[in-house]
Design a protein around this nucleic acid. Structure first.
Lengths: 202, 202
DNA sequence: ACGCGAAGTGGACACTGACAACATTCAGGG
DNA sequence: CCCTGAATGTTGTCAGTGTCCACTTCGCGT
């Protein structure tokens, strides 16, 4: 056999797993199926991952990165000039992109938030800016403060308020009572929710 | 055997399943374990439920009911007299109770929102008041309008904005980046988020 | 009294995650 | 250049799960 050693199995497994995750969510990431699709025997994965959970965690990281990228891409489309309006607009687009990604890639989104261990391993009490979607939101909110659209006192806790709102909205659409809502209505309702947020912060 | 026929297996199974759900979440509701704990053979459940999912759905309904009850209980403790302040306070307690239930009973909470089919079977586009937690929130918001604390225009979509915020907050605490946050900080941050909501609506 | 249909049982199958023992390949020092 | 040890994959196996099937047991109406 020329390829008894696959060469770089680990990344290959992760990629396959990501594909599974995208189309079938966390429960779709089945170790044996991942091995099958990668053209390797079951158990091969155990040389690179202690657990199925460890593989899932890797995929979750990818999901987070994709989510962040989607948000960044969307942010780049904001062309407003006036600083405050611009910052406010960017905040809104952040939220929109978040929800849109969740609805467009439900599998990845769920996996991204299904990790058992998560990044809590570091033991950070208050999760400081870590560069992920949370970090991006943090930046955008800082911009808003700099532009004078948000007073420093109200800046405290604004991160969580914003994230909770969009995260909750996404989840209510995915697995909650907003499942059956037609997409058009969904956008409208999201806009209203974002309006509330906007007003609550200003 | 005196009890070959259990008599009322279905409710018994649901109760056992609810226990499992409470301590181990959706994945903890294992058909065979449910049967075991109910003192009946595996497969017995198939006389009463087509699927494992059907049993889970029943448990989910219980979870929703418990959540609603927890919210109602909390609402009853508000003793403010002034109508507007009272309505506003009731709204806040609704949110607090929601999050508190989610954190106190994570298993049940997850099961409640993990149902595949959900109540979307009816095909209602916009989920009207159905009596569950959503219905309760609806009532409270109506109270707030009646008390003059919320203009009718802003009433539209307020339900979703509120629910999304608390739901998202709960999920971020359960499986998101707020996992490691100590309880005290959690309450504080939640209060800030509720402040944002309050200001956004008024 | 009896038999018929509902309720529960036992056995099977395909599937999964995990473990252990084995086979193969690669790298590097004699 | 070969030989050995450590990575890396493989086969075999086990316990556990959801679901289907045929079978048994029981309660109830005629």
């Amino acid at each position: 056999m020329s390829t008894y050693h696959h060469g770089n199995l680990r990344p290959a497994l992760v990629e396959t797993a990501a594909g599974l995750a995208r189309t079938a969510g966390p429960d779709g990431v089945v170790l044996r199926e991942v091995a099958r699709q990668t053209g390797v025997s079951h158990n091969a994965a155990y040389r690179h991952f202690a657990d199925r959970d460890e593989l899932l965690a890797e995929v979750a990281a990818i999901g987070m990165a994709q989510l962040e990228q989607a948000m960044r891409d969307r942010l780049a489309t904001v062309r407003t000039r006036d600083p405050e309006r611009r910052a406010r607009r960017r905040l809104r687009e952040t939220g929109r992109a978040y929800v849109q990604f969740a609805l467009a890639e439900p599998g990845m989104f769920e996996v991204a938030f299904s990790a058992k261990g998560d990044a809590a391993a570091a033991g950070q009490h208050v999760p400081e800016v870590d560069g992920g979607p949370y970090g991006l939101l943090h930046e955008v909110l800082d911009e808003l403060v700099a532009a004078g659209g948000l007073s420093p006192e109200r800046r405290v806790g604004a991160d969580v308020a914003c994230w909770a709102a969009v995260h909750g909205f996404a989840l209510l659409c995915l697995r909650g009572p907003l499942q059956a809502l037609p997409p058009a209505d969904r956008d409208a309702v999201l806009d209203v929710a974002l309006d509330v947020l906007d007003r609550g912060l200003s």
